[in-house]
Design a protein around this nucleic acid. Structure first.
Lengths: 228, 228
DNA sequence: CGTGACCTTGACATTTCTCAATAATGGTGG
DNA sequence: CCACCATTATTGAGAAATGTCAAGGTCACG
């Protein structure tokens, strides 16, 4: 399905920490994440930055997703490959390829739904609930079942990235994660990797568990959690 | 531009408090707000509701904007007229009408940008900053310049609606508004109406002022604030 | 090894929430 | 048109959550 897209897109390979110009000026741009991970953030004058979206393989980003005149950046948090092309070009390709059109449609709908959920997460959940929500999301998106109830996944995001995503500060986030470890829900795992020792207990902590399952099922990734 | 849409849409007239079925099942539905105001909310199990979007005349809503399996509702907060039709039908009309296509494109882009801003607002601003942000937004969207520096606008949203939008609780919101009144920024106005006595001072309170101006300028409404 | 970035933890400050009492408003029926 | 009642808004006092600041620890990389 992506062969035609790959032929037209410029392929960007990014190191950890590298940022990509969103080019809000000029024609609208589309990005497709092929591997790695990125964060899309937004910093209002005089405030801490807010991470608006965590981007994983398969995600599609449009430059219009971010307000004009806002200070926003797209930054790779691990070694990443993304494809970039004009939105109009991508739409034209989708015109010839129903599978691609369906993929884009689902991707866009999934993203708006995800944003709504993110708003509810930040606006109404406690710190621990927010952390459980993002960990459950990552487990669903990129987790691999280890043993019964255990799921492991790459954690390319730093504490600060996660905190900025959840509207917390890094100290508070660190405390919450320590709490989850002492509850036996998380394992004391290596850096850049997270091991969930009890997926059910983690999912029970987030009010968004069902919605997350629905969102990640419907599009994008096979859910590794069901196996666990 | 909307004549063809009006011919195909079913026109719903709603009283205050009436809710509209979003019909997440079945084909995707589009709604166009013609007059009045609505709130789109989302309630995760065991938590307070979160208002995800405030809808004003000219706004377009798609049923996919809300996560499936989530408890979400679209509720009129004043006497409201909306047009409802299938998203596929609206897209088909846009295929014949470049003006409509452009309107939809701008509307969708504006909404995602607005959502990003909303996330930053809830995630990173203090209570007072959040309130200043939503009041500035409403002033830009539907304000009418009264005298120099003064702007008035309808306030169909209850304290609870606003609080749920901003991720605060109504008590805190009420306190903040009282504070703005005692600072001379807001007038002690009637219910269902807000009078800003000093737009500059209000805008100075929100870090999002510039982004809000950009968002409301680019699409939808004429900004009444410039006059003031 | 040494250095810098990232993470953890404690003590304390601040903001926001919760609960409760009271006031104001708007709709309804007489 | 007025009185009543339910809903909504305001405000205070105390509780709880989160933020801030500072110190020390851990890890990756040169």
């Amino acid at each position: 399905m992506f062969a035609a897209v790959g032929a037209q897109a410029s392929k960007l390979r990014l190191r950890r920490g590298q940022t990509v110009a969103l080019s809000v000026e000029g024609p609208e741009t589309a990005f497709i994440v092929r591997s790695g991970a990125l964060v899309l953030d937004l910093t209002l004058p005089g405030t801490a930055r807010q991470v608006v979206d965590l981007l994983l393989p398969g995600d599609v980003l449009r430059s219009s997703f971010v307000p004009t005149h806002a200070n926003s950046r797209l930054t790779a948090v691990s070694v990443t490959e993304i494809w970039r092309l004009r939105w109009s070009a991508l739409k034209a390709l989708a015109g010839h390829d129903p599978a691609l059109a369906g993929f884009l449609e689902t991707s866009m709908a999934g993203r708006t739904a995800q944003q709504a959920l993110h708003i509810a997460t930040i606006g109404r959940l406690t710190g621990e609930q927010r952390v459980a929500t993002v960990l459950t999301y990552l487990a669903l998106r990129s987790g691999i079942a280890l043993t019964a109830g255990e799921v492991g996944f790459d954690m390319p995001f730093s504490r600060k990235d996660l905190a900025d995503y959840l509207g917390l500060n890094p100290d508070t986030l660190s405390r919450i994660i320590s709490g989850l470890r002492s509850q036996g829900i998380l394992a004391r795992s290596e850096r850049r990797r997270t091991v969930v020792r009890d997926v059910r207990a983690l999912a029970a902590l987030t009010p968004a568990a069902q919605s997350l399952t629905a969102i990640t099922d419907s599009d994008r990734k096979p859910a590794a959690i069901d196996a666990a």
